[in-house]
């Protein structure tokens, strides 16, 4: 019997190529994706890291030793010692703090309100989520029309006259902050709603038996239970706000009057004036900053989970 099975050519082939079906076949299928990922993700990352240590313009002809020319850490030194760059770092930090704080407070507040039992809660939740489903570029262009000093609804609704929210450097950072908060508050709200829904009801029931106040329940039950998911929302929003590009591009454009935000500056340096190596250095500094912030927050997230 055993001999018959061994003699079956199908079984013999199956045995012979068992390795192919298992690990090798798996590798074969992964290989194209892996090659593609290396080609479009890892290689540009390494290449741009190399470029950040050179003097190179993608617009000019490649001549090794001249374009690119090795300049060591000169680009990084130039970025970090340039007072104008620090103005951009500070403006971006302001932007991140204002938008993220606004979104966290409003998003969590809305989620708390939506926890209440009232008619039309589902419909209101759906309507509130709508802004974040839109394309950021469209949102930017829409807010640009809304802010237009001549015919925009923003000034009209607030009775402000012909205030320029788009090109006045004293105001246009705030106009982008408002649009960002409008667009991304629902994201925090949704995450908060998920977190609030996961808080066990018996904790509130036990607190009520002990006649605990609303504030006590909020600070001792709700906040600690929801904090891991709030921390996650915070991480996502900080990363996104730090590299904001599409909204300001839509609202103010990339001209001299636009707020000095890092990602906008990176675009101008890399793709308008084609200072590729200097742009790579800015990109890497941004990456390091985002990584540092994220690492600190992830540490807090793990602590909150515990």
């Amino acid at each position: 019997m055993g001999k018959n099975v061994d003699e079956n050519p199908g079984v013999a082939l199956e045995k012979h190529y068992r390795g192919v079906r298992d690990k090798t076949l798996m590798r074969v299928f992964i290989l194209p994706t892996l090659i593609l990922l290396i080609a479009i993700n890892v290689f540009p990352l390494i290449w741009s890291l190399f470029l950040s240590f050179t003097d190179y313009s993608a617009k000019m002809a490649n001549v090794w030793g001249k374009n690119p020319a090795w300049v060591s850490s000169q680009n990084f030194a130039d970025v970090l010692t340039n007072p104008e760059m620090w103005e951009k770092f500070i403006t971006t930090a302001k932007y991140v703090i204002m938008t993220v704080a606004g979104e966290m407070i409003l998003g969590f507040g809305l989620a708390l309100l939506l926890q209440l039992d009232f008619k039309g809660r589902g419909l209101i939740t759906t309507l509130l989520v709508l802004p974040m489903t839109m394309s950021p570029v469209i949102v930017g262009l829409m807010w640009k029309l809304f802010y237009d000093p001549n015919w925009g609804m923003f000034n009209f609704l607030l009775g402000l006259g012909r205030v320029d929210w788009i090109q006045d450097p004293a105001r246009n950072l705030y106009s982008i902050v408002i649009a960002d908060i409008w667009m991304w508050t629902p994201f925090v709200m949704l995450l908060s709603l998920a977190g609030l829904g996961a808080v066990p009801k018996y904790l509130y029931e036990a607190a009520e038996i002990d006649r605990a106040s609303w504030w006590f329940k909020f600070t001792r039950i709700t906040l600690p239970m929801v904090s891991p998911i709030l921390m996650l929302a915070l991480i996502f929003r900080i990363i996104e706000a730090f590299k904001i590009f599409d909204l300001p591009m839509g609202i103010t454009g990339r001209g001299a009057m636009a707020p000095p935000l890092l990602a906008m500056h990176l675009y101008n340096v890399s793709f308008v004036t084609w200072k590729t190596s200097y742009g790579s250095a800015i990109g890497y500094i941004m990456l390091i900053m985002v990584l540092a912030i994220t690492l600190v927050l992830v540490k807090y997230l793990n602590r909150a989970k515990q």
Partner: peptide, 21 residues
């Protein structure tokens, strides 16, 4: 010249800050 775009960006930035801003 090939550097026209860098010249343009610098000029636009500084002149706009005065003319517009």
């Amino acid at each position: 010249c090939p550097e026209y775009d860098v010249l343009l960006r610098t000029f636009s930035q500084y002149i706009a800050e005065y003319v517009v801003g």
